Simulated assay, not measured.
Amino acid sequence: MAGLEGTERPRQAAATAAARWTPAVDEELALKALERYGDPTLGEVRLPSCPESTVAARRLTRCVVVTQWGLSAQLAEQAVLLVSELVGNAVQHTGARHFGLRMARRRGWVRVEVRDPSRGLPCLLPVRVTDTNGRGLFLVDRLSDRWGVDLLARGKTVWCEMRVADR
């Protein structure tokens, strides 16, 4: 019994957190992220290079894709995953203090850009079923219709695009 006590607290905390989550709470958090960092559709928003920024970027994406652009839940989930992977790579691999996030929609396309000051290029690695990391760019490659890197005078922009149906 003593061994189970240690696992009950995390389970209770997770159950309590899940009980507090609602779409309204998610939308409120997304709007707070929008107020704090800005709208990535109006220009590049600057985020600190830390794991918490991945959460903020996901919230910004959901807010933009669903609320502003009115895209389907499936496209929203795909866009959120793409942003999460690009931002995660910037946070984990560049050593930057900040990175920029920008999103654009044009006829039939959604584009996501993550700019950082590193000129190190991302590498698409082969992925095996047993791999526990190194899947980020693989997912970007599979989920987006196209992606690439633009080298800048100081840094780079990693971008991806996905096709969307126009209303």
Score class of each variant (00 low, 15 high):
residue 72 S to C: 04
residue 140 V to Y: 02
residue 102 R to F: 11
residue 46 R to P: 00
residue 130 T to A: 13
residue 166 D to A: 10
residue 123 C to P: 01
residue 128 R to G: 11
residue 122 P to T: 03
residue 165 A to D: 13
residue 54 T to P: 00
residue 80 V to E: 15
residue 108 G to C: 06
residue 127 V to A: 14
residue 104 A to T: 14
residue 101 L to A: 05
residue 117 P to K: 05
residue 157 T to Q: 03
residue 47 L to D: 04
residue 49 S to F: 01
residue 86 L to F: 03
residue 8 E to T: 15
residue 103 M to Y: 03
residue 115 R to V: 13
residue 129 V to I: 10
residue 62 R to Y: 05
residue 138 F to M: 03
residue 106 R to N: 09
residue 115 R to H: 06
residue 119 R to T: 10
residue 84 S to G: 15
residue 109 W to S: 03
residue 54 T to R: 10
residue 53 S to T: 08
residue 24 A to N: 01
residue 134 G to A: 02
residue 159 W to G: 05
residue 111 R to F: 00
residue 40 P to V: 08
residue 42 L to N: 12
residue 148 G to Y: 02
residue 77 E to A: 13
residue 101 L to G: 06
residue 34 L to I: 06
residue 87 V to L: 00
residue 110 V to W: 02
residue 151 L to W: 04
residue 88 G to C: 06
residue 10 P to R: 10
residue 156 K to S: 10
residue 117 P to Q: 05
residue 110 V to S: 05
residue 119 R to G: 09
residue 78 Q to T: 13
residue 14 A to M: 14
residue 115 R to M: 14
residue 159 W to A: 05
residue 140 V to I: 12
residue 119 R to H: 09
residue 129 V to Q: 14
residue 158 V to Y: 01
residue 133 N to K: 05
residue 19 A to K: 07
residue 92 Q to C: 14
residue 43 G to N: 00
residue 62 R to M: 06
residue 125 L to T: 07
residue 108 G to S: 09
residue 71 L to W: 08
residue 79 A to G: 01
residue 1 M to C: 10
residue 154 R to I: 03
residue 147 W to H: 15
residue 33 A to R: 10
residue 158 V to S: 04
residue 38 G to C: 13
residue 81 L to T: 07
residue 114 V to I: 05
residue 147 W to Y: 13
residue 97 R to K: 11
residue 132 T to Y: 08
residue 131 D to V: 06
residue 87 V to M: 00
residue 91 V to I: 15
residue 65 V to F: 00
residue 64 V to Q: 02
residue 89 N to R: 13
residue 149 V to W: 02
residue 101 L to K: 03
residue 31 L to E: 11
residue 114 V to Q: 01
residue 116 D to L: 07
residue 35 E to V: 05
residue 58 R to E: 13
residue 67 T to Q: 15
residue 6 G to Y: 06
residue 105 R to S: 13
residue 124 L to T: 04
residue 36 R to T: 11
residue 44 E to T: 15
residue 104 A to Y: 01
residue 112 V to M: 02
